[in-house]
Every structure is written in C-alpha cells, then in structure tokens.
Write a protein that binds this DNA or RNA. Structure first.
Length: 480
RNA sequence: GGCGGCGUAGCCAAGUGGUAAGGCAGAGGUCUGCAAAACCUUUAUUCGUCGGUUCAAUUCCGACCGCCGCCUCCA
C-alpha cells in the first residue's frame, strides 16, 4: 500500500475531501452503467474512461478495488411514454432481450477499443428482479412507501434528507415542469419503486402488487448494496443523474438500511459536440463506433483525459486532430526508448536521469492525488518526455539500466494508470519486405547522392502512409 | 422560478491571494543533402463585464452578460 494522499471531490460536501475508504485497503465503487438500447456514444466514453482511470489509480495505490457497474436492460420510459428498449425492439424486429444482449456486446466492444478495463461485476437489472422486489417490500414495511393502483411509490415526505445531494428543496421545484404528474401519487416528487405494466408491455414480472416492472432508481440501490454492502465508498455517474436518480437512490437505500449509502459521490460533466449538447434529435449524436472510424482509440482516450472529468468536454474534429498530434509525440518518445533498450548495453544507472525520474514521478502522483487531475498528469508526461529526448539527444551510449528507469516511468503512469500507451491492434503491414527493400534501394541511391530518386521513394511511401526517418546509420520507418 | 457546472492566448486546457502549466497550430533557429523526429527560442501586461474587500485578485465577495446541464428518461 502506497502512502495515500488522495483527495476526491465529493458532491455531497461540494469539497475535495481526503479519501478514506470504509474498510482500510479496500474500495467498493459503483458506477451507473449504460441502458443497452443502442450503440454507446461519446458521453459513455467520457464517463467510463473517467472511472476507469479512477479505478486504475486506486489499484496502483494498492487498494483492492471491487468495481461494479450495472447493465440496465429493463427499458425505461421516453417522453413519448414509450420504452427505449421496446421501441428499438419493435424497430429492429427483435425480442427485447435480443436488443439488450446485442447492445451489451456492442458496449463492451467499444470499451475494449478504448482500453477501458471491465468492471469486476456487471450485474443486469433483469437478473435482480427478486432483489428489487425485496427492497421494495422492506420500504413498504418500514412505511417509506405506499401502493397505489398496482404501482408502488416512495413517499418522499417520510424521508427528511431528500435533497441532500442535489441541495434542492421540494417546494422550489416546478412539479410537472416537463411532464404531467400522475394523479395516483401523493406528492408529485414521489417516485416509482414498482410500476404496473400495461397489457402490451413486453418486459414484465410477477410481484406482490401484480404484474409490472421495477422503477428506474431501484436497480442501482439493489445491485450496488448486494455486491458492495450497505455503504459504498464511491458512487459515480454523470452530473445529469445527480437529480433525480442519485437523490432517489440515497432515499431508498438509506430509508431501507438506516445507514449512509455512499461516502463519496463523484459526478463527471457532459460531452458537447461543437459546443452543443449531443442528442439524436439535433443530428450530432456521435457513437463510439463512428468516432473510431476516424480516430484511434488512443486518440479518443487521450482527448477525454486532457480535460478534467468535472469539466465539460467539447468534441470537434479540430480538437481531436490536435489530440492526435499530442499523443503521437508521447508515443514516438516511448518507442524511441523501447527500441534503444533492445540493443543497449549494461551499465550504471545515470543518477541525473534517476533524479528526473523521481521528480516527475512525484509530480505525476501529486496531480492524480488532486481529484484525479489527468490534464496535469498528462502535462507531466510531456515535460518528462522533453527531458528524455534532451538526454537521449546528448548521450550516445545510454545504459540498459537508465533506459529501464525511463521505461519504468511510462509503463505505470502512461500505461497502467492513464492507459494511453499504444494499445490498438496494429494493422499488419503485409508489404513489410517490400518497404524494407525500397528503403535499402533508397539508401544506395542516397550514397550515390541520387537525391531526386531517393526523395521520390520517400514521398511515394509517405503518400501510402509510411513515414521514413533517416538516422546516422540507418533509416527507420513508421506508420504515419 | 429553483438547483448546479462553465467562461483563461488562434484552438484545446491546468492553475493559484503575490503576479499566468502543458498540448495543438504559427514564427525563427539547431541538426539534416532535403525531410522526418528531436531540441532551443518565440506567441496572454492578461484570465467574460462592471464594482467591492485587500499592500496585492485571474484566484475572495456582489451584480450583470453569455454558454451548458438538471427539475420525465439520458453518461
């Protein structure tokens, strides 16, 4: 266990707090997962990359982390009154569960492409209907809920702490600001724990209150507490979910257990596209799969991490291109180090380089300790890279030990924690022998000072996406 | 109407009560046959606007302007 100086911004207190988990050395974290009714979009990318780095850093610090992220495969209502999964099922002429399965796979595919590590547990809402019914029963027994026309609602008036996360007062809200209030509720803000299913509803289950399906908020309370205990260390999600979703989770959970539900609430900001909210109706909805057609996984991941998680992220071609140039610089330096290491000889570790290593290591940790400040952590990577290049430019014979030390910076920090070292499957260049033949030929032309022909070869290769770099004794090539 | 986030160079983006990290783009230079890569130099007297507190504010307070989110579901 490393010395922990981590501070986490807690939405509950609106302050950065020292991170102290409930059980020493162990962290239980729950993050709101996707509703699997369509391909994931850039908003999901920001969310899951954010918490992926949180988990990776906690693990690097030495915590044993249990990361739980739900898969919402029970559809919830659209403003049209339709259910998202059902709508898509009808459109694609598939069973709702086929839709859920299809997009669950799509989701994991996308996360893999972005180097997001899988959660330890990905519980499905439909697999925990019994538990959700049980929790609803407990709330009814304790008097926090009431049944009305086949549905069960949480009685907000019984839970005095309602609003403590979002700091909203019920009387300030505009009931029915955007949707008509159901008359079967005692108070407009009462929310459903169990909903009576209309006849045509496809996803429905038996319950003590008749045929129906669970309310939106109850699955998170149920599954998080089932796998992480009654008090979670961290609960993460998007800011747009702080109210009402997270507020309702707190109400349900704390009413049922009498204990604090979550110690640290973490909320990330939104994704914009060219400064505008991303939405299907505006036609600027970008799926991760679409983005991956234009940009590498590394590039997207790097781009997400160059902005702090609590700041909005504005996606545009211009900025993605810039991010691509930035990550390229880091990769080239890293490659330079690993290539040199292959032929380097044993020797002493250069104390100067070791000092550089220590200095930047401390800076990196300091940045991450400050509420996971990845933009600063990345800037440390750039500063370190400059030191490394400078050093490598000035020293011809660098020992294996020194190069190993440099590697020991990149590997845990850029690699294990930020996850931005090269990870995509590199395309297999079938023409490698031909490329190398051309380079050999070009070298001969160069030794004969036949610059025009040599340059023509270089230009043609460049047009094919192969960049040549002439070094003192040899020519290196890479995919540009 | 209420709750919350944001506004820093051409673009992206950190940050702090004591005088503005880093990246991309641009300019100049070193290296190179020329490139590429790398390195060096350079690019905000200024941090939405107007007031206030202070010896000192971009950083604290107040007002205002603008953008975004939430008060149905949405990462």
């Amino acid at each position: 266990m490393k010395k922990a100086n981590l501070k986490v911004y807690n939405t509950l207190s609106r302050e950065k707090e020292k991170f102290v988990p409930v059980h020493p050395g162990r962290v239980g974290i729950y993050v709101c997962g996707p509703t699997v009714y369509y391909h994931s979009h850039l908003g999901h990318a920001k969310s899951y990359i954010t918490f992926d780095v949180v988990v990776r850093y906690l693990r690097w610090l030495g915590y044993k982390v249990k990361y739980v992220q739900n898969i919402t495969d029970v559809g919830h209502l659209l403003d049209t009154g339709e259910d998202r999964i059902l709508t898509e099922a009808t459109k694609e002429k598939l069973d709702p569960m086929e839709i859920a399965e299809k997009y669950t796979r799509s989701y994991f595919e996308d996360m893999d492409a972005l180097n997001v590590k899988r959660p330890n547990i990905s519980p499905h809402a439909t697999g925990h209907i019994m538990e959700q019914i049980e929790l609803t029963k407990i709330l009814l027994d304790k008097g926090y809920a009431y049944e009305s026309e086949g549905s069960v609602y949480f009685d907000i008036s019984k839970f005095s702490n309602y609003g403590k996360l979002s700091r909203r007062k019920l009387e300030d809200q505009l009931p029915g600001a955007r949707i008509e209030v159901k008359s079967e509720k005692k108070h407009p803000a009462d929310f459903a724990l169990w909903i009576k299913a209309p006849k045509e509803h496809l996803m429905k289950w038996k319950s003590p209150w008749g045929i129906g399906y669970p309310g939106w908020h109850i699955e998170c309370s149920t599954m998080s507490m089932k796998y992480l205990g009654e008090t979670l260390d961290i609960h993460g999600g998007g800011m747009e979910n702080a109210f009402p979703h997270h507020e309702c989770e707190i109400a349900q959970s704390e009413a049922a257990t009498g204990k604090q539900f979550v110690k640290y609430w973490m909320h990330h900001n939104m994704v914009l596209v060219n400064g505008v909210k991303m939405s299907k109706s505006l036609g600027n909805f970008v799926t991760i799969k679409d983005a991956l057609k234009k940009y590498s996984g590394e590039q997207i991941r790097f781009f997400v991490l160059t902005t702090h998680y609590r700041s909005p992220l504005d996606f545009s071609d211009k900025v993605l291109k810039g991010a691509g140039e930035g990550i390229k610089g880091i990769h080239i330096t890293f490659k330079r180090v690993t290539e040199l290491a292959q032929t380097a000889k044993n020797g002493k570790l250069d104390s100067k380089m070791n000092k550089v290593f220590e200095t930047y290591k401390q800076k990196f940790i300091k940045a991450m300790d400050d509420d996971f400040n990845t933009p600063v952590a990345i800037s440390v990577l750039f500063d370190f890279g400059r030191e490394v290049n400078n050093y490598l430019d000035k020293n011809i014979q660098v020992s294996k030990q020194t190069l190993q030390t440099i590697y020991n910076f990149y590997s845990p920090f850029a690699g294990d924690i930020l996850g931005i070292l090269p990870f995509s499957k590199q395309p297999i260049i079938e023409g490698t022998p031909f490329i190398e033949f051309l380079i050999e030929l070009r070298s001969k032309l160069r030794s004969l000072k036949q610059w025009d022909l040599a340059d023509e070869i270089r230009l043609k290769l460049k047009n094919l996406g192969i960049i040549l770099e002439d070094k003192t004794n040899k020519t290196n090539w890479r995919i540009g």
